[in-house]
Amino acid sequence: MANKSVWSDNRFWQRSATWVTGFASVLLIWLTFDTSVQIAMGNDEDLKNGVTKRVPGPTVINYKITYEMDAKRGHEVPVIGEKENFFGRDDWSEEEAGALLHLGKLGSQAKNCMDCHTLLGNGAYYAPDLTKAWLDPAWGPNGAMQALTAKETKEEAMAEFLQHPDRYPTHARMMPDLGITAKEAKGLVAFLKHMSSIDTNGFPRNFGHMQGAINGK
C-alpha cells in the first residue's frame, strides 16, 4: 500500500474529531465564564447609581420599568426610571426584595408556569409569553384587568388574578386555579416585574406598541 491517502485514514479523522470536540468545549467553557459575569444579578447600589446590568438586582421592584427603543442598539431595551410603589412601598430593602423574588421564582417552578407559558421565550405555547407581562397594556391604567379585578394598582390586580384566574376569564382558554396563596402571588408578581427588567436584546419586538393598529384576523 504505497499511496494510502490521509483522507481515508481513520486515525486522521479520529484525531481531528478529538481536537475539534476538545477545542469547541474549551471555547464554550471560556464563553460561559464571560457570560456568567455578565448575567450575574446586580444589586441595590447599581440601581441607585444608575449602573445598567443585564439582570438587575431584586430591588428593581422599587422602580418604574419601561421598554423603549434604543437608537444605538437598534432594538428596544428595558429602561429603569424613577421610583414607583410596589404593593404600597418603594423602599423594599435588598433582603426583602430578594426574599420576594426567591419566593416568586420558586413559585414559578412549583406551579409549572413554564408548561403553559413561555418565560424569556422558552417553555410552552398554550398561553402568552410572560417575559414582559409586567409591561402588558392589559394590566396598565388603560387596560381591562384593574377594573375587572376591582384593584387600584397593577401589582394588586396581577396578584388577584394569579390567585383566582378562573374568576377572571378573558378567553375561552382559561388559566386554572393553581392554589396560589396571597403571599405566593406577591412573590410571583415581583418575579414577573423583575423579569421584565432583564435586557433580552430586544425580544419581544415592538412589545405593546402596536395595540389595535392592525386587525389580525
Partner: peptide, 22 residues
C-alpha cells in the same frame, strides 16, 4: 479558523506516519 487550522498539522503528521509505515 482556529478550530480548522490545527487539522492541517494533524494531516501532515498522519501523512508522515503513513509514509513511515511503508
Amino acid at each position: 479558523t482556529v478550530i480548522i487550522l490545527p487539522m492541517i498539522w494533524i494531516y501532515f503528521q498522519e501523512k508522515k506516519r503513513l509514509e513511515n509505515e511503508n
